[in-house]
Computed example of a mutant assay.
Amino acid sequence: MIYSYIVKKEIRKTFDHVNNHRWDEAVKAVASNVYHRVSGVHTLGGKRHDKEALRRWFERLGRVLPTLHITVNNIWVTGWPWHTTVFAQWDGTATLLNGDASYVNRGLHVFTLRWGRVYALEEFYDSQAAARGLAAQAEAGLEEAVAEQIAS
């Protein structure tokens, strides 16, 4: 029970780091050979297999959706310190460069932890909503919003 409480607190803290563009803090507990997958055929989609690529992905997230705010609604923790699975259900909102404040996405992150380190992170959300938002950012002049995926 205490372990679950600590994990939930750390996961919420990580989302706070993302909301505030503190990328070094966001990847602090990530293993060097992390597996990161985001669904969708857009600039934020694809797979990464190392911490540095994940950090670059977070930096891009901050540039292409600079006002993104993620609200964590629920976190579920299962397992023991040597192999823990965490599910974090969230809502994301942003105001796009064209002034449209209606960007909303809802998703689920699945974390695999070992002894407090993130070894895998898979993100499930409305990839079509993300693609539409990124296309709007590109139409407003942000070319990186339609750049090639960061993969490793």
Rank of each mutant, 00 (worst) to 15 (best):
Q128W: 00
H83N: 15
M1C: 02
R12F: 05
H69K: 15
E144Y: 15
Y3K: 09
T95E: 12
N74C: 11
R56T: 06
Y35I: 06
D126M: 03
V72A: 06
I75S: 01
V64N: 03
A88F: 00
T67C: 08
E144P: 15
K47I: 05
D100Y: 10
E25C: 10
I75H: 03
R106N: 06
N19Q: 12
W115N: 06
S4A: 14
H49K: 08
T67D: 13
R37F: 14
L96Y: 02
E123T: 07
A135S: 14
R37A: 11
N33C: 06
T95Y: 08
I150V: 14
I70T: 12
V34G: 02
I6V: 11
D50P: 04
V18N: 03
R60I: 06
G46T: 04
A151Q: 15
R132C: 06
A129C: 02
D50V: 02
T85P: 13
W80K: 12
F124M: 09
T78H: 12
W23P: 01
L134T: 08
G99C: 10
V18H: 04
A147C: 15
T78M: 11
F87N: 07
F87L: 14
E59L: 02
I6F: 10
M1N: 10
E10D: 06
A130M: 12
I2K: 10
T78V: 14
T43S: 13
V77G: 00
W115A: 01
L61R: 11
I11C: 00
H17I: 03
T84S: 12
A94T: 06
V7T: 02
E10L: 05
L113P: 00
R48Y: 03
S127N: 09
E143I: 12
W76L: 15
V72G: 02
Q149L: 10
A130H: 09
N19W: 03
L142V: 15
V38I: 14
D91V: 14
Y125H: 14
K8C: 04
V146M: 07
N98F: 03
A138I: 02
W76P: 01
I150W: 04
T85Q: 15
V34T: 09
S39V: 10
T112F: 03
W82C: 13
V18K: 01
W23R: 02
L65I: 10
K8Q: 11
T78Q: 14
A145N: 07
E25R: 13
W76M: 15
F111I: 01
